[in-house]
Design a binder for these strands. Structure first.
Length: 294
DNA sequence: AAAACTCGCAACCGCTAGCTC
DNA sequence: TGAGCTAGCGGTTGCGAGTTT
């Protein structure tokens, strides 16, 4: 429970006391949307007053950016988005806003929540500090391939069925209240391309090497391995480094980030089978890692 | 059936960089 | 130049929904 109250310099004491906090109502949302539609964003404190909202400018800004803005995407992150987050976080750390810039329609808040609830949870599960180099390595060894597998599954299923039945459809409809933004599943978002995975295949080193291509072809089987503790005791080894150029993901047609080429995912080639306590004590809980709810 | 617990996410807070005057 | 203000960032919290006991 918060007990401290810090005055906002844009409000006198009486106004400040009257400020509303907590969940937004539909009425407030409508007020904000209507005002911004007519007058645009910015000057949030005065905007809040002019719109007749008993909210701080901060609160209005947050509500707009995180929820009401027309291009805001709702619902679960796609595998591609998750891959991007993992990779970009390994580069930039908790620079949520910077990471969010590369995921059109996603907010820093959403990404931050994803990281805290999914990724850090997994780190705790593995008893590894989520900010450690080792955790990043484990992500790249086990999680990345799994996500790539999901990309493959999604693209293959989308080629045989319409998006409406896909789990990628998200549970956005249960979210409330706010404008429902039509959301296109990532893998079927670009009709000019057969599928993302095929596009990646044609242009990245990952799929260029014969053993990596073999790995791709074996993804379903491999995922079973990942999910199976016994996998860690098997003699299977992956000796190739694979590289995935993320810039080849067409992020909902919003264009390519300018600094995202040549991002490398690497499957390490050493010591991951006999990888000490990690391998012996635990394994990646892919059901938890995988964000889509059953 | 209901109490206890867990989880995910929206919204809040404090801090600070950058802008204006 | 520095004070005041705003926008934006990252960390934290509280609530509601779902799950377990």
């Amino acid at each position: 429970m918060r007990t401290t109250k810090k005055m906002n310099t844009s409000f006198n004491e009486e106004e400040f006391d009257q400020l509303k906090r907590g969940p937004w109502t539909l009425e407030e949302d409508n007020l904000l949307i209507r005002y911004i539609t007519c007058h645009g964003e910015g000057r949030w404190n005065s905007l809040a007053k002019s719109a007749g909202l008993k909210r701080t400018g901060k609160s209005c800004r947050l509500r707009w950016l995180n929820y009401l803005k027309p291009d805001t995407k709702r619902g679960n992150l796609t595998p591609q988005e998750q891959i991007l987050i993992l990779e970009l976080h390994s580069k930039w750390g908790n620079r949520w806003s910077k990471i969010a810039q590369h995921l059109p329609g996603r907010t820093d808040n959403e990404i931050k929540n994803y990281w805290r609830t999914r990724v850090q949870k997994q780190a705790r599960h593995l008893k590894i500090d989520s900010s450690s180099k080792r955790f990043v390595e484990e992500l790249q060894r086990f999680w990345m391939p799994r996500l790539l597998e999901k990309v493959e599954q999604t693209s293959s299923s989308s080629s045989t069925s319409t998006a409406s039945t896909s789990t990628m459809e998200t549970d956005q409809n249960k979210l409330s209240p706010g404008p429902q933004i039509e959301q296109t599943p990532f893998a079927v978002s670009s009709p000019t391309r057969p599928s993302n995975i095929e596009h990646i295949n044609s242009s990245s080193n990952f799929f260029a090497s014969s053993s990596s291509a073999k790995m791709l072809s074996q993804l379903p089987e491999m995922s079973q391995f990942y999910a199976d503790t016994a996998f860690y005791n098997s003699s299977l080894q992956i000796n190739d480094t694979y590289n995935l150029d993320i810039s080849e993901f067409d992020m909902m047609g919003f264009g390519q980030p300018d600094d995202m080429s040549n991002l490398n995912f690497q499957v390490a080639d050493t010591d991951w089978i006999s990888g000490g306590d990690l391998a012996a004590d635990t394994y990646w809980n892919m059901d938890e890692l995988w964000q889509f709810k059953k």
